[in-house]
Design a protein around this nucleic acid. Structure first.
Lengths: 125, 125
DNA sequence: ACAATATATCGACCAATGTCAATCTAAGGA
DNA sequence: TCCTTAGATTGACATTGGTCGATATATTGT
């Protein structure tokens, strides 16, 4: 890329596309997301893209105080305790849940806005 | 589920939780999502949870006519043509893209509302 | 018909992921 | 102090998933 002036969209006359674009290509209305942005969003979506983890989030969100202990989860999910613990870790590391240990019990709460944020970013892709 | 009358939230007095709930549990404000719903949403999210596929969707959406040919993608993604073709297939099967073959070229377009729909469902989990 | 091009499919490979049994850690109660 | 219980960690395993090279299919141009 050695051009001193960036090729603008308005520079493209209908029949001719951008320099390195193929003949079949149509004009762009805006920029696509960058690869870095794509990787960040993909990481968040990967953390959510599991039935057990979605149910965990939903169970936590369904509680009046937006908080659930692990026993709430082991009771409703037909998964072993270590597996549930693993999913919780994934969700905490992805920034969707926060852990608070009180006595013997661990309580998990939703990080406010974290889900909505991902949903918003996704809708803007 | 053989109860004739559903247990209402207002039936639960503060100190006592639902029948099979543990001592650490707090009351629910609403129902959590069902496992079927969770699996459906997870399938959609899995299709989106990949950097290459997010970029593909973004590139398609960035086009003025919401349509891109494969050559647009091979030019921008540093992935082999078979790999891109694979990702396109995943996105079509998940219902996010539609394929239209015209002549030698295949054009992929966004299925209107499909992304917003997932974003909306996700935000409601 | 033939050659060239665009895209899809196949087969194989390696990395990442979900799951569980076994074990470890920490907090409470007797 | 010891036992019990809640939860996290570890290690192993099977499955899924992303990638590419090779090949197949289909369409256009000569």
């Amino acid at each position: 890329m050695t051009f001193t002036r960036t090729l603008l969209l308005t520079d493209i006359s209908p029949p001719v596309a951008a320099a390195d674009a193929a003949a079949c290509s149509s004009p762009l209305a805006r920029e696509a997301i960058g690869s870095l942005h794509a990787e960040t969003l993909a990481r968040s979506l990967k953390a959510l893209a599991d039935p057990a983890r979605l149910r965990i989030i939903s169970i936590v969100a369904a509680h009046a105080d937006q908080e659930a202990c692990v026993c709430d989860l082991t009771g409703q999910l037909t998964l072993s305790q270590p597996t549930i613990s693993h999913h919780l870790k994934v969700l905490v590391e992805a920034g969707f849940l926060a852990r608070a240990k009180r006595g013997t019990w661990s309580y998990y709460s939703l990080v406010p806005g974290s889900i909505d944020s991902v949903a918003g970013v996704l809708a803007a892709v």
